[in-house]
Design a protein around this nucleic acid. Structure first.
Length: 475
RNA sequence: CGGGGAGUAGUUCAGUUGGCUAGAACGCUACUUUUGGGAAGUAGAGGUCGCAGGUUCGAGUCCUGUUUCCCCGACCA
């Protein structure tokens, strides 16, 4: 074995070690900070590329706002400041002097952006306004985990302003579905889309939507969120416009974000005891070539073949590399499995002689032998696509097998005992009852799915009207 | 932020009641033999013992502070 802790027995240890050993990241010197190494940062670059393309295609313009926010800005929206005050980092000194007004390092950019929106927006003709920025934000978390919760993290935050509530609502769901599309298509992650309960919504929002994912630790992780901010911020920051009837109106606003936490989700959803498992569309290296040779002449021939494959791969958009390190073949097999590369090609004397390639899938360890031919890359691409689909299917099965609807507290207890991750029941969105459930079973309300939004049933505790709500332990 | 554990070579760790020049394994470097599931030999390099202060003739070891990581809890996008 590779010396990794077992994922099923000790997820926390496994998670940390797989990240460090696969070379995704290191710890930074300041509490809760992390260093993205090349192998890990490439994953984020792929998020920026693919999700970025989707956002731009929907007519959202990329911008960049400063990271320093005057403290007074943050205080303007009451719920917002109460929500974020405990976790902001504040700059009090700069240039060797104490600052007149302390500067908050952005925990999110609503306040600084909307102060500016007030100037940008005058007429209904200026709406809708849709912007996005890729940035780092800082939230001083008490308990941190690589990728999933770090003091400083990277994300994109989209912000839009609209003339009507309906237009803003539509944008909230457009963003949510875009995230879902990205998660499915690129990260091979199935999620539960829906609303946050009132106790879990964004500070300052009318309502918050979310995508909840189930990790293999059986804990839920929120990946991506989209908020209807109503006119709350517009009123606080005076974002007003004149409508068609020459009436002053407050704008309706939304914000939505997707962060490096998603990479933690990807690791936690697809990994196994052998290590990481990267979906082909996200992987920095999609195919690794392991040469196996006995003589320098053999090595040279294999190198010719490998170079050609890699070169051609580059031209058709398959990310390949060969491992010519002096480690033994067995060592390399284990190493690249730990690093999560979707496909491995073994080229030895046998393959050379028969003009074949042995291709091994990371997803299930199975192998196929391909005849070396002109359309070899097409076949490789098909294998990559297959792996991508298989990962999604596997994750979906896991999600289904670990989700159960219950109709009483006894059933709930039983479901948790039997290893369910999500327990689903009619719930009245009562804060007190949620607190009791957290106290007794460590579960919190994660999401009210869009899919069953209109089903009304009796809350299994109070008998009041409630909606189907997913509960789970949160990561 | 509360409770617990830890920080000594790149990594994992040993280091006894304070005592001589701080150790091992793996990894790393060079050479040789190897390469189809984590190879072997020989030689070598590598340490301000997390950081700061204190006690002492003498501190990896004792004391104080501080910082980082892990686990549990509280808080939370």
């Amino acid at each position: 074995m590779n010396g990794l802790p077992s994922m099923s027995e000790n997820f926390g240890e496994w998670y940390q070690q797989v990240i460090l050993r696969a070379g995704l990241a290191d710890y930074g010197p300041v509490k809760g900070t992390m260093i993205f190494k090349g192998y890990g940062y490439t994953l984020w670059k792929n998020v920026q590329k693919y999700l970025g393309e989707m956002i731009e295609k929907d007519g959202v313009e990329d911008v960049y706002f400063p990271m320093f926010i005057p403290q007074s800005y943050l205080s303007k929206e009451k719920e917002h400041v109460e929500g974020f005050a405990p976790e902001v980092a504040v700059v009090t000194h700069a240039g060797g002097e104490k600052l007149e007004e302390p500067l908050v390092i952005r925990p999110t950019s609503e306040t600084i952006m909307y102060k500016t929106f007030a100037n940008w927006i005058q007429s209904y003709r200026d709406l809708p306004l849709k912007i996005n920025q890729w940035a780092n934000v800082v939230r001083w978390e008490k308990r941190t985990t690589l990728f999933m919760r770090t003091s400083e993290f990277l994300w994109q935050e989209g912000h839009t302003a609209h003339a009507t509530k309906e237009s803003a609502d539509a944008d909230v769901f457009e963003a949510l579905h875009r995230y879902d599309d990205f998660l499915r298509t690129y990260m091979a992650i199935p999620s539960i889309k829906g609303y946050k309960t009132s106790g879990e919504k964004f500070a300052g929002a009318d309502y918050t939507t979310t995508l909840e994912v189930l990790l293999r630790s059986n804990k839920a992780l929120q990946i991506g969120t989209s908020h209807q901010l109503g006119q709350n911020f517009a009123k606080a920051f005076d974002v007003k416009f004149v409508d068609e009837n020459n009436q002053q109106q407050y704008a309706w606003q939304t914000s939505w974000g997707f962060s490096t936490r998603s990479l933690g989700g990807m690791i936690g959803v697809h990994g196994d005891d052998k290590g990481l498992q990267l979906p082909p569309r996200m992987a920095a290296v999609q195919i690794v070539i392991i040469p196996i040779f006995k003589t320098p002449e053999g090595a040279a021939k294999i190198k010719d073949m490998a170079d050609k494959l890699i070169e051609k791969g580059k031209s058709v958009g398959i990310r390949m590399q060969a491992d010519w390190s002096e480690n033994t073949a067995g060592w390399k097999f284990n190493e690249w499995e730990l690093r999560g590369v979707p496909l491995r090609i073994e080229i030895g004397e046998r393959e050379l002689a028969e003009e074949k390639l042995k291709v091994v899938r990371r997803v299930d360890g199975s192998s196929v032998v391909l005849q070396y031919a002109n359309d070899i890359h097409k076949q490789l691409q098909e294998l990559l696509d297959e792996s991508q689909a298989m990962l999604f299917r596997r994750a979906e099965e896991f999600l289904n097998e670990h989700t159960r609807q219950v109709n009483s507290e006894a059933e709930l207890v039983q479901a948790l005992d039997e290893g369910m991750g999500f327990v689903v029941f009619f719930f009245n969105d009562d804060k007190k009852q949620a607190d009791i459930l957290q106290e007794k079973y460590k579960i919190t309300p994660r999401v009210i799915p869009l899919a069953t939004e209109n089903e009304i049933g009796k809350d299994i505790f109070t008998g009041k009207e409630g909606k189907l709500t997913y509960f789970a332990k949160a990561y």
